[in-house]
């Protein structure tokens, strides 16, 4: 009788062991593999972030196989076009007793050996920017100006590793352009106080 009992117990234990084997889950070895496998037949999603871009003037750019939207710049600059005021050559405007306009701009971008106003602005054509070699660059495409030096950041920006998305994650992609975050005359981020302080955490760790 005892022998039978042991048999039952043994069978029972085996069943429990069998039943407790984890199943499923292990389809992929890791998430990278899963991404690779599942994105092979990616058909796109119905989710779109288009409605979050409403009311925002954008222009489409295509660089290096990356096509996306950036905010329109010219519409954002106060009193564009510049030639509305800059009707005369700069030298004349400086000497005359005109109302001061850009007097508070202090250039804090690289050092004065590397950059001054005319590195980017064309004194002869205020409505356009100019490249180092003297070609004109549209204000809307100012990233072309920045990318002359900041090549690494430009690469990252095109891919999406640098800069910030507008709207949402879903296509169409709209990204901020350089000057949306960086003031071109003073491109670094200011230091400031953190947005909040957690007093409960202090208590908890006393």
């Amino acid at each position: 009788m005892n022998r039978n009992l042991y048999k039952y117990i043994l069978v029972g234990l085996c069943l429990v062991a069998l039943f407790s084997c984890k199943h499923g889950e292990g389809e992929y070895h890791g998430v990278t593999e899963r991404i690779e496998a599942e994105s092979k037949n990616y058909h796109g999603t119905p989710i779109s972030s288009e409605k979050y871009l409403e009311g925002l003037e954008t222009i489409e750019i295509s660089e290096d196989g990356h096509t996306f939207l950036i905010p329109d710049r010219k519409g954002q600059i106060k009193s564009y076009a510049c030639t509305e005021c800059h009707s005369k050559p700069l030298a004349q405007m400086q000497s005359k007793d005109l109302k001061k306009a850009h007097w508070d701009i202090k250039l804090n971008h690289a050092n004065s050996n590397t950059m001054n106003c005319v590195t980017c602005h064309n004194p002869d054509n205020m409505d356009e920017l100019k490249s180092l070699t003297g070609n004109t660059i549209d204000f809307n495409n100012s990233y072309n100006l920045c990318s002359q030096c900041h090549t690494k950041q430009f690469e990252d920006w095109k891919g999406g590793a640098h800069g910030k998305r507008i709207g949402g994650w879903a296509p169409p992609r709209a990204s901020m352009t350089c000057v949306n975050c960086h003031n071109p005359h003073k491109p670094h981020f200011e230091s400031r106080w953190p947005a909040r302080f957690n007093t409960e955490k202090v208590k908890e760790r006393e």
Binding site: V31, I35, E38, S39, Y42, G44, T45, G159, G160, A161, R165, W169, A170, P171, R173, S175
Partner: peptide, 11 residues
Amino acid sequence: IFGNLLDPEST
């Protein structure tokens, strides 16, 4: 940066 991992075009 946030996005869809299955979209090969995503950032």
